[in-house]
Structure formats: structure tokens, C-alpha cells
Design a protein around this nucleic acid. Structure first.
Lengths: 203, 203, 203, 203
DNA sequence: GATGAATGAGGCTTCATTCAT
DNA sequence: AATGAATGAAGCCTCATTCAT
């Protein structure tokens, strides 16, 4: 494959990466495709060669950026061992840690929240392909723990959305306040773990 | 007071209310002041008689809409009675219930998330005047409960941000998925209460 | 006459004076009647009570401000004595001196030049009621001097517009460059006088 | 050079020429870029492709139009021969003749006078790059004539601004009154020449 | 007489999109 | 494939003018 051909094959991705940065910086409406082009090192025309409209660029970018967390989560879940409590701890640790590190995931969520009403399908997709699977991961481990007698059979274990709550707070806090009103991530993670484990364990 | 004077006094609020609806519908950039005007029953020019720029309309609107929850929270906290556990329950119940009912609060948060990078001062203000006070309310009750021996002295009770997590998940879920992917609010509230109370109570 | 009545009678003049300053500062189109009102210590509505439109304010202001130089010139001419050379010297001295001092006259000319194409009648009026009379004043003295044998009978004395030239240069220079590129008015006046007198005197 | 490239190279000039006509017709503030575009045979957007703002269009246009007289003046001065009196005559003849013919130069001056307070740098530039050089041209010839004993050593020859006066009167007269109050240019030139030459010649 | 809230036409400017090269 | 000149719809904002009080 020639260097030129390689570049050609990478163009769309380069454009979507550039689009991500620009959309994050100024939001959908206020972002100029001109700036996306400049950041990607191409010209406006080139963007229109690969994507029909600005909307399309946004949608493809979101699709492109949304598919990174889930595989890792599955990998973690697959190879997790030990008691159910240990497995749940591993899940929580990984998940919160990932959110703390993963700026892309947070910004994707931000864009989803910001532009959701303009792109309802995208929101549905985010729910079905990310949110619900994440909740289900938790549900699987927790339900197994209940069956095994490690966790209480109660509303806290049957409605696992609540176990994901700390992750959501962390996401929003980091995207909103970032460094301006810093959050002690380590303490927050410990507190979350403490609350969740003590909250569901059988006595 | 004459009819004219009465109108003048009410105009700014009418405009800000209309602005809220429009900004919520399409976001800051994509909202036309023209439409805000129409919704408020005035013309473009009138908006500029009361507010300098579109940015100013947005900021004033956010300020106007942000100051509704806190007083109620304080009222609840003030007149709460019983054990610390009972008081915490009352707080959680009120808070989640309020989020479920209060579309305005959720949409305000949505706008803050969406346009935060454009209005950093607004974000700081939101943290200082809303987020932190809410956390502090929880901290006060929980800390008192720890002192009284009702709650465990542990990370879950020292880092009270985590107790607010369910509220954040509920907010985001409702603003994002709304009716499209309904959440059983009653069950979620029960699960949250269950997790929090069991998670922090002394055994 | 009551104080109120007196104020009332002065209002139009106050407005025109304010209008002069504002129009001078920003030109006809860019001047806001709002600012004129504020400077005059009234509100927009009041201006419209006295004048039909912005155009009218401008026209009346120009009429108001244009009628100050001529009477003085006539007074000087009337009471001038001595040889024709002495009388011409007096005229030149007064005229250049007056231009140097009279910011109003210069700014009026500036506005006329700037907005002339919008107000052709105003230009005609300026010519007929100011420019031509000034030239005629010079012509009267110079022609008398020629008849008396003091001045040469030549084109320089028959086409007296040329004797007014230095005044025009001074006007434009002061209005354009003002203090930024200062002109030595005393030297300029001397040079003008020298040129004119030596240029037309009989030998 | 392709057709497209040729257009691109010519566009800015075409736009500035169109801008000149429109600004002359209605002044800076009242001129619509829309009309400039139409006259240039393009659309609004195209103007903004080449120039940042309306102000910029005006400034570039003034720069573009201001640089036409001086080179000719220098050419005339360079190849002038004969006595100093003859050389001065040539200069005056050329200068007044040029002003009479050169509508562009007069309109440029008109715009400068009209909009000078909005564009002070432009005024300074006009002084430094046009006014002063012209005066210096006259000064050079006259001073040489004084040294050679042809002209008197007096204020009229040391302060050469005065020798430029007739040109200024002619400019203003033509731009203000134009055809409405016609001036006999030939007679005016003769009278100017007569006054200047007799006014400075040694006897 | 005077006020100033309200109007709405109109101008500057931006930017998604097109298309000839 | 890629460019970038050109378009023109659309939005923010201004301000002359009106008119109820």
C-alpha cells in the first residue's frame, strides 16, 4: 500500500478525530466545519467528499467515539475471578478508574446530553449499546452474588441502576467542574466501593 | 400601578421564561432570539431593550432558573425530625422526588453541561451555590448520625458526595432518555434508599 | 417669563447644539438621536416633538450653525479704514484669524463636505449665503484698489477666488490634521499675507 | 494562468473599485456592502472572502486609490527644465490641471475629510504620504529659486504651504459645488499662477 | 410637553454547502 | 481526490420612529 493510499484510507478517521475535538470545544452548532478541516489538515471540500453534511459528520464521529469502553468492560468481566464480592469490586474499580481517565467517554456523554434533542436516534443508540449493557454487566454479577448468598436479596440488588450511580456522578463532576473544583477521585472511589459493598452484602 | 408599569416590571421575567423554553429546545447557539421574542409575545427589539446580548439573556435566564430548589431543601432540612436515619430518609425522598418532578432543574443542568465551556463562571456559580450546598446538607445529617453512633464512621460517610450519586443518575437519565427508555422512579428511589441506608448504618 | 417657559423656548437650540457635537463626532449616518438627546438632557421623544426626522434635525442644525461668520465679516468690512491695501490686510487678518479660532465654522464645512451629496440644497445655500458673499467682500476691496491704482489690473485681481485660497487650505488643514500635524498658524498667515499683497500690488 | 486564477487575482481590485463608487455616493456608514457587491458583480459573501470587515474594505480602498497622483508629480518634477520660474509654472499647471481632471483624487479627499475622525491613522498616512510630499515638491523648487535669486527670500517663499492653497480651494470647490456652481477653471488657474509668480518673484 | 417602552426594517457578518478546476 | 472561491440564507444587533401614558 503506498503512502498516499494509506493516507487516503485514514482520512475519514482523521476528520472524525478532528471533529471530536472541535465539537467538544464549541458544541455542535457553534463548530465550524472550516475549523474541523484545518485541524484535520485538509480543506472544507475534502470533508464533503467523505461526509454528506455537518450532521453526518457529527453522527459518524459519535458512533466512532462511542465504541471504546464496552469491549474493555467485557474483557474485565470475562477474566474476573474470585468471590462475587471480589468480582464486583473489580468491576467498580475498573469502571470508575476508566471514567476518571477517559476524557473521550466523558466528552461523548457531554455531547450526547447537549445535542440529544437534535439527535434522538443517537440517544436511543447510546442507551441500547452502552448504558443498558453496562447496567447489565453489574446486574449479572450482583444477581449471581445474590443467588450465591453473598448479597442481600433486596431492592438495592434487584435495581442495579443504583450501583452505577457513582460512575455517573463522577462523569458529570469531571466534565463540569474538571480542575476548577477538583474532586478527590481516590477518596470518591473508596467511598463508592464502601457504600456499594456494605449496602448490598448479606450479613 | 399603571398597566404600562406593570408590563414593564413583568417583561424581563416573561422574556427569560420564554428564553428558557427555547434554549432548552435547541441549545444556546441554535436558538434564535426571534423565536424567544415570539414566544414571549414581544419583538426582537424589546429583548434588546432589556438585555444587552443573547449571551446576557442566557446568563440571566440561568440565574433566574437556578434558584428554586435550594430554599425548599433548606425548609425540609430545617423541619425534619426523628432519628438521623429518619432525617436522612426524608432528605433522600425529598431530593429524588423533586428531581423526578422538577423538569426545570434538570433542563438547567442540561444547559449547564452543554454550554458550560462557554460560560465557565456560570459553572462555578452552579457549583458554589447549588452543588456544594446540596452535598453539605447531606454531610450535615450524615455526620451528625455518625457522631450519634447511628451511622458507621467510614469513607462512605466521610465523603458524602457519593450519597448524592443516585440523584445525579436520576437527573441524567430523565433528561437523556425521558420517556423513550422509562425508568421506574419508585423502584429506583427505593433501591437508592436501601443502598444508602444499609451502606452507612452501624451494625 | 417663567423658568419653565424659558427652558421650553431654549429647548430647540439646546437640541441643535447637542446635535452639532454628535454629528461632528460621528457623521450624519452613524450619529444616534439617542445620543443627541442624552447630550441635550432630554429624551428621544422630545426631539421628535420639535423636529420631524433625523434629517430635519441635521438641516436645522446646519442652518443654525452657519449664520455666525458673515455678520462679523460685514462689520469688519464696514468699519475698515485706510488705504485699500490696509483694508485688504485687515480683511485677510480677520478672516484667517477667525478660521483658526472658529472650530464651529470648520466643522460645519466638514459636515457640508461629508454629507453634501445627501443634502444638495444645503450645499447651494452654503455657496450662496456664505461662500459667494465672502468672495464678494474680497472682490469689493480688491476691485476698489485696482481702480485706485494700488493693485494691478490682472487675472489675480479679477478672479478673487484665489485670494480666498489660503483660508480654505487653513480650514481643511485644521479640520483634517488638527493637532496631529500642527501648522504654524502665525507663519502661515504671514506667508499668505505676503503672497497676496506682493502678488497684487502695483509696482 | 487559468480563468479562475485570473479572476481571483482581479477580484479584490474589482471590489475596491466598486467600493470606491459606493462610498463616494453615500459615505461610509450609509453604504451597504450589499450594493458594493452588486456593483462588483459578486455577492456579499465574496467580499468577506477577501476582506475581514466593512472597515477593512474602506481602508484598503483608500490605500488603493491614494497612490496615483504622487508618481506623476515626481515625473513632472524630474523632467522639468528651464528657469526656476518656468519649473514652478510647470508644477502649478500640472497640479491644478490634475486636480481639475482627477475626480478620484478629489473624492478620496472628500472621504478623508468625512470619515477622518473614524480613521485617524488614515489621515496621518494621507498627510505623510501625500500632503507633505506635495508641499515638499513645491518647497524644493521655490527654495532653489530663492537661492538662485529668482524669488524673494520672504515668508511667502519660506512657508510653501501657501503656494498649495489654490489647489486646495479648487479641490474643495469642485467636490462641493461641482457643476451646480461652476468655476472657470482656466481663469482660476491663470489667476493662481499670476498671484503666485508675482507674489514671490524678485524685483 | 415629555417620556421611554416597543416596534421592525435593515445592515453586518457567519458559515454550511456547492462546484469548477 | 482535493481544493478553495463563491454563494446566499440566516442570525445578531442597531436605531429611527411611534405612541400610550
Amino acid at each position: 500500500m503506498t503512502k498516499r493510499a494509506r493516507r487516503k484510507a485514514e482520512r475519514p478517521t482523521e476528520i472524525l478525530d478532528a471533529a471530536f475535538e472541535e465539537f467538544v470545544k464549541t458544541g455542535y452548532s457553534a463548530t465550524r466545519l472550516q475549523d474541523v478541516a484545518k485541524r484535520a489538515g485538509v480543506t472544507k471540500g475534502t470533508i464533503y467528499f467523505y461526509f454528506e453534511t455537518k450532521e453526518r459528520v457529527f453522527q459518524e464521529m459519535m458512533r466512532h467515539k462511542s465504541q471504546e469502553l464496552l469491549p474493555d468492560l467485557e474483557r474485565i468481566a470475562a477474566k474476573s475471578v474470585g468471590s462475587h464480592a471480589q468480582r464486583l469490586r473489580a468491576l467498580v474499580t475498573f469502571f470508575l478508574g476508566r471514567i476518571a481517565e477517559d476524557r473521550t467517554g466523558r466528552e461523548t456523554l457531554r455531547l450526547l446530553i447537549a445535542e440529544g434533542s437534535r439527535f434522538p436516534d443517537m440517544v436511543d443508540q447510546y442507551h441500547d449499546e452502552f448504558m443498558q449493557p453496562v447496567i447489565d454487566h453489574f446486574k449479572r454479577v450482583i444477581t449471581a452474588g445474590v443467588t450465591a448468598g453473598e448479597f442481600r436479596a433486596a431492592s438495592a440488588t434487584s435495581f442495579t441502576e443504583v450501583a452505577v450511580s457513582p460512575a455517573m456522578l463522577l462523569s458529570i463532576w469531571l466534565m463540569l467542574f474538571g480542575s476548577r473544583r477538583a474532586l478527590d477521585i481516590k477518596s470518591f472511589t473508596e467511598a463508592s466501593m464502601d457504600l456499594i459493598m456494605k449496602g448490598i452484602e448479606e450479613r
